[in-house]
Each structure stands twice: as structure tokens, then as C-alpha cells.
Design a protein around this nucleic acid. Structure first.
Length: 437
RNA sequence: GCGGCCAUAGCUCAGUUGGUUAGAGCACAAGAUUGUGAAUCUUGGGGUCGCGGGUUCGAGUCCCGUUGGUCGCCCCA
């Protein structure tokens, strides 16, 4: 097939694809709704500056940006966070706290596609604004777990790794690094899992070689996998801020455990996440068995609403993408098989019977039943076959014999039992038969 | 932005050292079958062999370019 193709990294959603996508969305929406989050949306196209204000040059190169006909520099949204920060910031005074919002929306990033990453994709975004305490983290982590568990995924399938940028900064400053050095080191720490010790090359170029003793300490801190280890590593430091931070850690882990979700979460200081605006806890959800990229990621960003021109409003949030989620569900055999089956298939004797049947068909449809019938005049045998293939529960038979008697035959497709019913009682009887189970 | 692999029907693929009019299975449609769902059989539609150029008497096949897909690197909000 020549002619037009979709753009690279963009997908056509044929009905089967669309039904899989809808399944993902409906699990997300159901979970978010159960947690009391309210759904919102924002413009797909935003001023370019909205993203420049938050992100660096590298990120800007990956924006779907252009100049509109009025000469404005604009960009398709690569993420929701700046938009939702603007929305919440603009009405922060009027919104009841805590503000718990979510969205399911499409995003656009000008990157090379690869496994689990496309140029157009959907994400669930869930955020809590106005709640500085770790209760917000507990709620969001629990929601994140439910957004995956809702598909039938279990503790054997995925894991949430919890870390803390605040603690990293505290630790790095205690080791004698200034803020710029600490930021560069966090980039290296983020890459260490993938690149090993080469991750520190970038730091060395900018800030000189890392002292061997410091590097060992950083590597040891990075390998921390439990709260006990974390407390032990920090035991030599005395600070009220640090004590408060560790108390927050205990609260988060206790809260998640109290929900029965302890097996879904692990302390893991190797996670720091790429961009710099996170201010405290950060977390990522990983496929436990496979080689997929992160399923979801999030964290606290207490400064961002203010940075974007709003009030000083603490925030935590996460995002989960449809592409990696879809891959994981397919790998685990958790993609439901959607059958688009009607309730009723009408079998029509001929041209006269067709016109009679149309009246009933429309009445049934208006009553909310899904009704199908053949557009062409077909032999009865073919129509019964079509009825069976459609997956309809009932067949309504409009033949000449029936109509001369003023009845319609109703066939239960599964049980193959037939009965006759007066035409004026068709809707009522169908309602009885189909509401049964 | 960089690199590996790939591209023949809606799908999965075959197609000989380059040789006449490019095939199969599945799927779809029609018929055998104008009052009851299976199976089978017959028939049919559907391809500018991703696109462009080159070599050659001759290219689906060889060469170059390009587009797209895929996997990885950079990055990952």
C-alpha cells in the first residue's frame, strides 16, 4: 500500500488496538477515581516558554515545537507537569486541599523511537498539590501500585524503587561537595546503573577527578537497599533536618506496609531520576523480570509551582506511560481479548420482513441493546452463520411465517432453544432474557 | 543527532548462479446451499516486489541513494 503513512513514531489505532488502549485507560481511571483523584485536561499546544522555563537545552531539542501562523513560538506538550502547575497555581486559593488531580492524555516528543518509546504516547499523570507531609507520597505510591495491579500484575511482576534526592544532597554536602558538584554527581549516580564507573567521567570533566575515598563512599551509599542500612550510613551525622527526613522515610514505609503493599516497594538509593526539579522522595516502577524501561516514575517537586509563577505550593506526582505498560501486559498475557459482540442479531426473511424488522430493531437499540442485522438479503443459513460469528446472545427471526402470525422467533444462540413471542412484546422479553445474567 | 538489522498481497512468508505473465497458507468475498450455526469443495478480488537511480539484452534478486520499520547509543520530563 503506497500513499500516505503515519508519521514516524505515531500510531494508528485500529479497533483492536484501540480496545487495548481503552482497557489501559479504564484501569487507570478506575484506580485514580477510587483514590479520590479528579480528572482534568489541558491544551495539547502550549507556549514554548512554558517548557523552556522548566527544562534545559537537551530537553528543548526533543520538543515538537514550531512557529504558529501568528508568529508565536509554540510546542506540542511533552508532559503535563508545567500545564497542571499553571492550572493549579492560578486557582490555588480556591481549591480545597489536598488537591488530588489526574489526567490521561497524549504527549509528543521529537525523539528516535525505540522499544517502549514513541513520538506520540499516552500517560497517566497523578499529582497531589498542597500536602507537604509524606502522607501524599503514601497515597501516590499506593495509587501507582493499584494502577499496575489493576491489570492483574502482581508483586512478582513489578517493583517500586524509592529514593530521596534530599538525602543525596545532604550526604554529598557532608562529604564536602558544593551544590554544583552535587548536582553533577547526581547525574553520574543516575547513570551508574547502566554505565558503571564510566558514569563519573562527565563529572571529572567538569569538576576534576573524584577523590577515591569520596567515590567509595558514594558507591556504598548508592548500594543502600534498606532503611536500616540508610540509618546506619547516616548515623555519624547529627542534624535536626536529617532526623526529620528519616522520620518521613519511616512514615512512608510504614504507611505503604500498613496497606499491605510492602512487597511492592524497595528502598533503593541508586534511583535519583534525570531532571533536577525533584526535591525529595523520588520513585520509579520497574518490570521485575524483564528488560523493559521504567514503567512509571515520579517524585516530590515542591518548588516547581512557584518557579512557574504560582504560589509556594508543595507537590508530588508520577506519570505512567501506555507504551511500556502495553508491552508488559502483552509479555504477561494480560491483554484481554476484546470481542465486540452485539446482544442481538436479527435474521431477515426478505425485503418485506426487513422493513418490519427495522421498526423493532430501532426500538431495541433505543432501549439500549446492541443490535445488528445483515445489510444484504442473504439465505437463512448464511444469516444464522453470521449471527453465530457475531457472538450475539440472541437471534430474532423475522421470516414470512412468523410475520403472518404476528410473532417473532427468539433463538438463544448458546442453548439453541427457540420460542415465539408476539411482536409487541419483543422489547420486554428481550429485556427479561438479557438482564438475567 | 549516531550505529546495527530489516522491507514481496490485509497477516505470516516462499521466490534457484539475475531469465517469460511474482506464488502459497491464513484472512476477506461470492457460489455449491432461498428456513437454522459444522466441515468441505469451487471461484474471485487484492501486488506499480517501500521509493528513486544505476549495472545488464533482462532486476523482486546485484550496486548506490532515500523513506519507513525495528533494536541499540545519546537523552529520557
Amino acid at each position: 500500500m503506497a500513499g500516505f503513512q503515519s508519521l514516524p513514531g505515531f500510531r494508528d489505532f485500529y479497533p483492536e488496538d484501540f480496545s487495548r488502549r481503552q482497557h489501559i485507560f479504564s484501569v487507570w481511571r478506575q484506580a485514580a477515581s477510587a483514590f479520590g483523584f479528579q480528572e482534568y485536561d489541558a491544551p495539547v499546544l502550549e507556549p514554548l516558554e512554558l517548557y523552556q522555563a522548566k527544562s534545559g537545552d537537551e530537553i528543548e531539542a526533543q520538543l515538537f515545537s514550531f512557529k504558529d501562523k501568528g508568529g508565536r513560538e509554540v510546542s506540542l506538550r511533552p508532559e503535563m507537569t508545567p500545564s497542571v502547575c499553571r492550572m493549579v497555581g492560578a486557582k490555588a486559593g480556591a481549591l480545597k486541599r489536598p488537591i488530588k488531580w489526574f489526567s490521561v492524555a497524549e504527549y509528543y516528543r521529537y525523539e528516535r523511537a525505540q522499544k517502549g518509546r514513541l513520538r506520540a504516547f499516552h500517560q497517566l499523570n497523578a499529582d497531589i498539590f498542597g500536602e507537604p507531609s509524606p502522607e501524599a507520597e503514601i497515597e501516590l505510591i499506593a495509587l501507582l501500585i493499584q494502577c499496575l495491579a489493576g491489570f492483574g500484575l502482581t508483586r512478582d511482576d513489578f517493583l517500586i524503587r524509592l529514593s530521596d534526592r534530599d538525602l543525596w544532597f545532604f550526604y554529598l554536602e557532608a562529604l564536602g561537595f558544593n551544590e554544583a558538584q552535587a548536582r553533577a554527581l547526581l547525574v553520574a549516580i543516575d547513570r551508574h546503573e547502566k554505565m558503571g564507573d564510566d558514569a563519573f567521567k562527565g563529572y571529572a570533566e567538569g569538576h576534576g577527578a573524584l577523590p577515591a575515598g569520596s567515590k567509595d563512599k558514594i558507591l556504598a551509599f548508592l548500594k543502600i537497599k534498606s532503611l536500616d542500612q540508610l540509618e546506619a550510613a547516616l548515623a555519624t551525622f547529627k542534624s535536626g533536618k536529617l532526623a526529620a527526613r528519616l522520620a518521613d522515610w519511616r512514615k512512608v514505609l510504614a504507611g505503604v506496609s500498613a496497606m499491605g503493599l510492602a512487597d511492592f516497594i524497595a528502598v533503593d538509593l541508586a534511583v535519583v531520576r534525570g531532571l533536577a526539579y525533584y526535591t525529595g522522595f523520588v520513585f520509579e516502577a520497574y518490570d521485575r523480570r524483564g528488560d523493559l524501561r521504567a514503567l512509571a516514575g515520579g517524585g516530590r517537586y515542591n518548588d516547581l509551582v512557584k518557579k512557574l509563577g504560582g504560589p509556594d505550593l508543595p507537590a508530588v506526582g508520577f506519570a505512567m506511560g501506555d507504551v511500556t505498560t502495553g508491552l508488559l501486559l502483552a509479555q504477561r498475557g494480560l491483554t484481554p481479548n476484546f470481542i465486540s459482540a452485539p446482544d442481538i442479531y436479527a435474521i431477515l426473511g426478505g425485503k418485506v420482513e426487513r422493513l418490519v424488522a427495522l421498526a423493532d430493531i430501532h426500538a431495541l437499540r433505543a432501549a439500549g441493546f446492541r443490535v445488528e442485522y445483515p445489510f444484504k438479503d442473504l439465505a437463512f443459513g448464511k444469516q444464522f452463520k453470521a449471527a453465530a460469528e457475531s457472538g450475539a446472545k440472541l437471534a430474532l427471526i423475522y421470516g414470512s411465517e412468523e410475520l403472518t402470525k404476528g410473532v417473532v422467533k427468539i433463538r438463544d444462540m448458546a442453548g439453541r432453544a427457540q420460542r415465539e413471542v408476539p411482536r409487541d412484546q419483543v422489547v420486554a422479553l428481550v429485556r427479561d432474557l438479557l438482564s438475567g445474567h
